[in-house]
């Protein structure tokens, strides 16, 4: 048995990959036990992998080995201190967990300054763009690139949109003034365009994942299990049959609602 497994490990891996892919996409037809089973298998695998990887790549070299092999006995206090977190489950002793939570709150608050300075400040700086076309110049020893009329128009559009969006989030007084009101409205429209772009990008991302799985079924599983030349076509035929079954079930008169769970 073991020898058979070792000999056929590659093919088994391909089959497992194909079955997992079909199982997870079966949720598109409707919620089912097959899908649930594989979802739980994936969750279990990912969690197990996380625990093992955290031990081998983090705790073993950074904590256990220095403590056990290099004689840094005081590293034991790290575990004790870290274990304070678990007191959160005790009503009586939950105050102990607040010590370590407070410690991390302090660290995070301190880091927030650095985060702001390196993340947002350069963006605020970059929002001030030149809007008058000019040739290449040197200002205070620093070369400044030429700005073409087209770039200037781009910069003006950018500045107008930034101002309008900021106006939308200006809640200190009621937006009665027609200029304030209309610019806030324009800001809202611009944000709608952005949300549309984000939604479109999300569809593209999800499609990319689907395409990758289809490529796996056709060109990895199909080609290696059924042969390089005819394998992808055989799998394509199998997928067509599967799609036909889905359509048949979808239009079957006595079919239950697709939203009903098992």
């Amino acid at each position: 048995m073991t020898n058979w497994l070792i000999t056929n490990a590659d093919k088994l891996t391909l089959w497992v990959g194909a079955i997992c892919t079909i199982a997870l996409y079966s949720a598109l037809y409707k919620e089912n036990r097959f899908y649930r089973l594989f979802e739980h298998i994936f969750l279990g695998l990912a969690t197990g992998f996380l625990v093992a990887q955290t031990w081998t790549d983090v705790l073993l070299p950074k904590w256990w080995k220095p403590m056990w092999d290099e004689g840094r006995w005081y590293f034991v206090f790290i575990a004790i201190f870290g274990a304070f977190y678990y007191f959160i489950f005790s009503q009586k002793h939950s105050w102990i967990s607040r010590i370590i939570i407070g410690f991390y709150l302090g660290v995070a608050s301190g880091q927030a300054f650095q985060v702001y300075a390196n993340d947002f400040w350069p963006q605020i700086q970059a929002s001030f763009k030149p809007i008058i076309p000019h040739g290449a110049v040197t200002i205070a020893g620093k070369a400044v690139k030429a700005l073409s009329p087209a770039d200037a128009v781009n910069n003006i559009i950018f500045m107008v949109i930034v101002s309008c969006v900021m106006m939308y989030f200006f809640f200190s007084f009621e937006q009665k003034n027609p200029i304030v009101k209309s610019s806030a409205k324009l800001g809202r429209w611009m944000m709608m365009f952005t949300f549309g772009a984000i939604f479109g990008a999300t569809i593209m991302a999800r499609l990319a994942l689907l395409i990758d799985r289809i490529d796996y079924l056709l060109n990895e599983f199909g080609a290696q299990v059924f042969g390089e030349a005819s394998g992808p076509k055989i799998v394509f035929m199998m997928l067509l049959v599967l799609m036909g079954i889905v359509l048949y079930l979808a239009f079957k008169k006595d079919n239950t609602s697709p939203d009903e769970g098992t």
């Binding site: 499609l207 289809i214 889905v246 359509l247």
Partner: peptide, 16 residues
């Protein structure tokens, strides 16, 4: 489900 099947077809067929 009809949309999903058409989507699946539109993704799979171009491979050929």
């Amino acid at each position: 489900r009809v949309i999903y099947v058409l989507l699946m077809l539109s993704v799979t067929a171009p491979f050929f």
